[in-house]
């Protein structure tokens, strides 16, 4: 999961979200699929994600999924065609009911066994974040606030900026948690399990927003920037920066003040 989370929304869903959507779909108790149709769905999705959609034919599905031998004739044994129709119907029913809020949609267009993947269509075209009342967890005031996935994009090679970035994100996290937001930090690539868990969070973007922060070294100081993204649409919901140009090493109090400004900006955008 390199780069900014918002980039996941450029074009079609990325492979890791498609596979996470598949996992969620198959685990959902309301999805009416037989065990072999679950294998069927897994087969076509994983083959497509792996770039092998050309291998998805009635014959290969009959042999690899439905246990037919090499004498399989789809003409007299239309098992694949029938089960594909049932699979399409089950997916359509799921996305009309329990899976209505699923952001990544897996479909099998009529006339093909190669699945298609798409983001959930926006109901009213609005790209504004959901209201606080629609999302997240309850706060002490009785309102609810969404989940935020925070990531520090400061270049670690710039040592001073990296240190200030750590201080900056620490204060932001502390303040956001105190405000009632549920917070996750993007883990390093080595922490694969945590990254996978966060990938699953991205499947429920009504409740989840991305917040990227960074400290950029400049010729006369540093720029502290933050950028909040609505994960349903990729729209930037708040983005701002503060240039600390007076000295190269702003004191902790200055960093805290800038962090507070960032938190107020994010809170206002998400909680109104």
């Amino acid at each position: 999961m390199g780069g900014r989370i918002a980039r996941l929304h450029d074009g079609n869903p990325p492979p890791q979200l498609i596979l996470a959507a598949l996992e969620t779909l198959l685990a959902h108790e309301t999805l009416r699929l037989s065990e072999r149709n679950r294998r069927f769905l897994s087969f076509v999705v994983t083959q497509t994600v792996a770039g092998h959609s050309d291998r998805i034919k009635a014959y290969s599905i009959g042999v690899d999924v439905f246990g037919r031998d090499d004498s399989f004739d789809p003409g007299t044994d239309p098992i694949v065609r029938i089960e594909a129709t049932r699979l399409r119907s089950a997916l359509a029913t799921y996305y009309e009911t329990a899976g209505a809020s699923a952001p990544v949609r897996i479909a099998m267009p009529p006339g093909s066994y190669v699945p298609s993947f798409a983001w959930r269509p926006s109901g009213n075209g609005s790209t504004r974040p959901a209201s606080a009342a629609d999302t997240g967890r309850a706060t002490t005031t009785g309102t609810t606030l969404p989940t935020i996935i925070i990531k520090n994009l400061t270049d670690r090679a710039a040592r001073l900026a990296a240190t200030h970035g750590d201080l900056f994100i620490e204060t932001i996290m502390k303040r956001l948690v105190a405000a009632g937001f549920r917070l996750f930090a993007m883990p390093s690539a080595e922490r694969k399990a945590a990254a996978t868990a966060i990938s699953k969070l991205l499947l429920h973007p009504d409740e989840t927003y991305a917040l990227d922060i960074a400290v950029h070294p400049m010729s006369t100081g540093q720029r502290f920037s933050w950028c909040g993204t609505d994960l349903r649409s990729g729209e930037i919901i708040c983005s701002d920066f503060v240039d600390e140009a007076d000295r190269d090493a702003p004191c902790a109090n200055t960093i805290d003040m800038i962090a507070m400004q960032a938190v107020q900006s994010v809170s206002k955008a998400l909680a109104g």
């Binding site: 065609r81 129709t85 049932r86 399409r88 119907s89 359509a92």
Partner: peptide, 11 residues
């Protein structure tokens, strides 16, 4: 989608 299910039923 329902018409396609009818076809699958026939098959």
């Amino acid at each position: 989608g329902f018409a396609e299910l009818c076809e699958a039923y026939e098959a």
